[in-house]
Nucleic acid binder design. Structure first.
Lengths: 324, 324
DNA sequence: CTGAAAGCGCTTACAG
DNA sequence: CTGAAAGCGCTTACAG
């Protein structure tokens, strides 16, 4: 039924070896022969079986990516950066998510999926780190897009969390704010600690609430602070979702943003420009991070040595109405 | 270096055939033998090569998905629905995007990627339709997640665009609005014509602008209408991005939303609840559409016949502040 | 410049 | 219940 290299060889009157050479653009084929083979390939609509090619070559020209839920507001950017880079290199991308928890991971490591790819890209490895480490030890090239923790063992791509936090603090300080509330993410994450350190180094405060990166937790943190009688003139939230929640709580309490309280977020998700007022935020270059991670992995597959330290891409303060 | 089925067989003192039987849970293996083999598999950390399995079995247990840019606000939901369903069935998902245009498609159809999957899921096939059709004719199972056009030749999953448009119109009419501006998408798309028909059947209007689904085009459409002296009391935009643009233009013109002009969008993207005021919108069940499309494809791969017509999932009017 | 043959790591009749 | 052997569709020394 399906057209194989043998069909092409027979039709073109050459050996499979020669067809294979043409397919792989080897120089040592007579140009007339090559042209004829190419013609037959076109006429027959022949497409090589990637499974067979992979088996024979020992590698699949496919990389896998293990992600948190794809509904995270910034995953689209990361994914697009990865796909573009990987496709441009002629690789395929196999996508896995951990959102079904242990079951997903089990499946991921299980017999069906495994060994189908040459290398692995991981975003936010929490929960899967042991598994990943084991695969890494057995020789699987891995690169982390790691905005959550510090995993010095792996090649990784990150962003300037500390400087990002500091830039938010400088901006608030320079616009005359001195009583900030920080709505932090879970402090177990390395990025959270970095953002906190950077911020506090510029603008020290005792008012620190720990949220869980959800909008609701941002809202609750502000409500608690207000109910506790805290007199704040600004909020720095560790992501835009919590900042949006803070915005709501402030306005619900009758406070004006930015006149009474300025708000700065982190990430610059698509929603950030649509809140009222639009959100000033520390932008993470998610797309560039996806591209860089993919490039790092591809370089690794091409035999290059992994870089000594993590690749760190700069954040950028984006000023909008919530903290002019 | 790498552990193969031969290593397991040798270590367990059985043939490769027996190991293969254990691997595939065939009933006809002595339970003691099976236990021993399983033990060796664990000890050696053996993982089958999916390439070899696929080659031997003639199918890869992998499906591919061809998508528009992953930064589309609702792609995350679709993708998550697909990944969940596909993973649960023990299949892998190969991701391709068309965002680099012709080059992407060429790569997609090219030798490296093709034949690496058993079936294909396509979202918004514009531009790739000829290619897809050709592959479909040659026997590749295909399912469309098609919110843009009408392609009766393919099994597809859609939503109730016409009823969605009608529900927006009924809502506006019932709240006393009679002079709507419709900001439509490109009328070349089947879904746009359906939304328009549904809306106009309930609330006829001559004020119809054609946007391109971008926020900017929504803003421009409203500005033009206002500049032309149109006296409107409501806007129905064919997606939330254009609705958000309309919202901005209206407020910039000094009009109050919803008091002076009510606004209804389409999609219910994450940003919809964060605009000021939050957007009333016709929700598309993107995640369910992704799940259904994947299920349809998997059923097809399992040998089931494709359904006669498209699978149509219901929209739902979500009422928020922009049109209470 | 070209081809015959072995091999990649599995599965699957077939035979026992 | 178990195994030897052929075959899946390619690539790659090796020989000419």
């Amino acid at each position: 039924m399906r057209v194989t290299i043998a069909d092409v060889a027979r039709e073109a009157g050459v050996s499979k070896t020669t067809v294979s050479r043409v397919l792989n653009d080897r120089a040592d084929v007579d140009s007339v022969t090559a042209a004829r083979v190419r013609e037959v390939i076109g006429a027959l609509g022949y497409v090589p079986s990637s499974g067979a090619v992979g088996l024979a070559r020992g590698r699949s020209r496919t990389v896998a990516m293990l992600t948190p839920p794809l509904t995270w507001p910034w995953m689209g950017e990361v994914l697009q950066g990865v796909v573009d880079t990987v496709e441009a290199a002629g690789y395929g991308l196999l996508l896995y998510t951990c959102n079904r928890g242990a079951e997903s991971v089990a499946h991921f490591t299980g017999q069906v999926s495994a060994r189908a790819f040459d290398g692995l890209l991981v975003v936010e490895p929490e929960g899967t780190l042991e598994t990943i480490t084991a695969m890494y030890r057995r020789g699987l090239p891995v690169v982390l897009v790691d905005d959550r923790g510090h995993h010095p063992d792996f090649p990784s791509v990150g962003t300037t969390d500390r400087e990002g936090g500091a830039s938010a603090a400088r901006h608030l300080r320079d616009s005359g704010r001195g009583r900030p509330l920080v709505v932090a993410g879970p402090t177990a994450f390395g990025c959270v600690r970095d953002r906190l350190d950077g911020f506090l180094g510029v603008l020290p405060t005792g008012l620190i609430a720990e949220g869980d990166f959800s909008e609701e937790s941002g809202r609750a943190a502000v409500e608690r602070a207000l109910a506790g009688g805290a007199r704040i003139d600004s909020v720095f939230a560790h992501n835009d979702l919590m900042a949006a929640g803070a915005l709501r709580a402030l306005r619900a309490a009758g406070l004006r943003v930015p006149e009474d309280v300025a708000v700065v977020g982190f990430d610059d998700i698509p929603t950030a420009r649509h809140t009222e007022p639009p959100l000033t935020t520390v932008r993470q270059p998610m797309r560039a991070m996806g591209e860089s991670a993919a490039r790092l992995l591809l370089a690794r597959l091409a035999g290059e040595d992994p870089p000594a330290g993590p690749l760190v891409l700069p954040t950028e303060l984006v000023v909008r109405g919530s903290a002019p």
